[in-house]
Write a protein that binds this DNA or RNA. Structure first.
Lengths: 210, 210
DNA sequence: TAAGGTGCTGACCGAGCGTTCAGTGCGCTG
DNA sequence: CAGCGCACTGAACGCTCGGTCAGCACCTTA
């Protein structure tokens, strides 16, 4: 009989540990090389195990990649929620949200590349990974849309299609992240986030909103 | 001595014809399958030639893909310029520009997928294709930035970092195109373009611009 | 210490890719 | 009509990659 710690066997703990090690290794490799060039061989090497070992913990490559992106998105969403909940008012919440995303993308390019590339992986008949990413992205958009809706109700934001606006903002964020990755540390995360929110709230038109 | 038509030999005309045929075939295949899955075999089949024949007209796959994206971008830019030049005022020009881009992306997904995927193709040490796409995208941003700057001078737009604003708009356009490709023909090109320009000019804030 | 089990290894496989090149056949020329 | 040149072909090549599995090493147990 195996000894138990907190209701889990030693084997289960070890398995979780190994699984996490491999996921983290995959995250690093993807962040460095992108999805397309992140081979199982390279990931195995990074994790310090043999290629075959990965297949003891994941059914195939796609399942591994899906876990990587899921994990990355979970961290991003947690940060975004935490940042937004600390801030007061729609503008501050959106800025905090963007800050979290920009910081997260700077520290960890893997999840962001996912956001960017996922459609490429299998444009037709999207498999597990594409579906998961689609779902994750939708979650982010929904969250942003929620912030916008509450802002509209409180009168801070004008009435608009919250979902469209949320997508609009998320895409802009994507662009800013891209730019930051291209020329890193050109400006602070806070400044970039503020610029985007400013554009988003006020636009570039000289006339007042209708 | 070969006969000449308009200063070009028959061989040159034929070569151009074949080259164009292959480029168009590649465009269709990329549009259907994406960059990653557009194999030379498939492109050759679509063009109605043998795989080896492509290598008589293009040094390698990358050169072929680069020509495809160059061609697509040239068409897009031509449309955008034409649309913008017909319109009067910054708002109308931007709307026309977005219309052109949305139409073009609807008819021809290849160039758009390029915009989306190019970073994926070679994240490190970007080769010919990535460099060309980067340059093309920069051209588009510059064009938009020009429209914005002139709008600022005429007083129609408020003063802002035109380049940042242009990137902001281009990314939003990208998002709209993505959405359109996901659920095609949900709304008219004109309506989508108007929505984006409206967001872009007025933002979602209830207060007037500073 | 011997036996048994289990986690792990890495050489191997087949598929698919971009690329090459010896061969083919068609059309032009003398 | 014979000979030649050249555009074109597609089988073959080298390579990479995801995925497999027979065997090994180590730990536990008796």
């Amino acid at each position: 009989m195996a000894e138990r710690v907190a209701g889990r066997t030693k084997e289960e703990v070890l398995k979780d540990f190994r699984t996490d090690e491999i996921v983290q290794a995959a995250r690093r490799v993807i962040g460095e090389l992108g999805f397309a060039d992140a081979s199982m061989e390279r990931i195995a090497h990074e994790a310090g195990v043999a290629k075959g070992t990965i297949y003891l913990y994941f059914r195939n490559k796609e399942e591994l990649l899906a876990q990587v992106t899921d994990h990355g998105f979970a961290v991003l969403m947690e940060r975004a929620r935490a940042g937004a909940s600390r801030a007061r008012g729609a503008e501050a919440k959106l800025a905090a949200l963007l800050c979290a995303a920009l910081e997260h993308s700077t520290e960890n390019q893997a999840i962001f590349r996912a956001l960017q590339d996922y459609r490429q992986l299998a444009p037709e008949n999207p498999p597990l990974l594409a579906a998961k990413l689609e779902h994750n992205l939708e979650q982010l958009v929904s969250f942003v849309a929620g912030v916008i809706e509450r802002g509209t109700k409180s009168g801070e934001l004008r009435a608009c299609n919250a979902r469209r606006a949320a997508r609009f903002l998320v895409e802009s964020m994507r662009g800013a992240i891209l730019e930051r990755l291209r020329e890193p540390k050109r400006s602070s995360v806070q400044a970039d986030a503020a610029t985007i929110v400013d554009f988003f709230l006020h636009g570039v038109g000289a006339t007042e909103p209708r």
